[in-house]
């Protein structure tokens, strides 16, 4: 296999990294909002969060992406496939991350919230300054795990027309008839990316002050 082909795969992997990173971050933001809804004590918000989480965890990502891809034009929304892919991935990972965070929020010691109450923090301040940072620290391993899953699941976004690593590999196979070399190379690139993420995650876990770290 030529360097030219490998370079094409590497370039496409940048798209994979970009789509996954943006989706994980948006998903994290949405997951924090879903957790806020869950903790708000406001019934309709809690129902919405519950429904959202069970719907997007209970249906396959591929089906969600296909649905989104076919639904948007019907309702008259024309957006680039990149945006469609990010929306699809973000919403799906938001549901999983919200579920991960739930354990983290439950693990925030009551005493820490009580000392925030005594210090005069409003519930919103307590949420953002105390609960969220602690819940994130407690669930960091699960978050890293989810990032790796999303990096791999991003191979599915080719169905909305985005050319990322897997789709590029398929295209190259179609024109060169070298499936073994090309798919093995693609697999290797995924592996390297995920090893980097896992290592960086472990470093972060060790260095982060507070729960766990020093």
């Amino acid at each position: 296999m030529s360097w030219k082909l490998f370079n094409l795969l590497l370039e496409a992997s940048l798209m994979t990294i970009f789509v996954s990173t943006v989706s994980i971050l948006i998903g994290l933001f949405l997951a924090i909002l879903l957790s806020a809804a869950n903790l708000s004590g406001i019934r309709p918000l809690q129902w919405f969060a519950k429904f959202f989480i069970s719907f997007f965890r209970g249906t396959p990502l591929l089906v969600q992406l296909l649905l989104l891809y076919n639904l948007l034009p019907v309702v008259g929304i024309q957006i680039p496939s990149l945006v469609t892919a990010i929306i699809g991935l973000s919403i799906c990972t938001a549901a999983y991350q919200a579920e991960n965070l739930r354990g983290g929020f439950e693990g925030v010691p009551t005493g820490l919230v009580e000392s925030a109450d005594m210090a005069g923090f409003s519930p919103v301040q307590t949420f953002f300054h105390i609960r969220v940072p602690i819940a994130l620290r407690l669930t960091l391993p699960a978050l890293i795990n989810e990032a790796i899953l999303i990096l791999k699941a991003s191979s599915l976004v080719s169905v909305v027309g985005l050319i990322e690593l897997t789709r590029m590999a398929q295209n190259l196979v179609a024109s060169t008839f070298m499936p073994l070399e090309i798919y093995a190379s693609a697999g290797l690139i995924y592996l390297v990316i995920n090893l980097v993420v896992a290592t960086a995650g472990r470093q972060l876990e060790r260095r982060l002050p507070g729960v766990g770290g020093k």
Binding site: G111, L112, S115, R137, P209, G210, V211
Partner: peptide, 16 residues
């Protein structure tokens, strides 16, 4: 409450 300070058995410092 702003007139009251509370010190807990378990300190309850914010770890982060």
């Amino acid at each position: 409450r702003s007139q009251i300070g509370m010190v807990f058995q378990q300190f309850n410092l914010w770890p982060h």
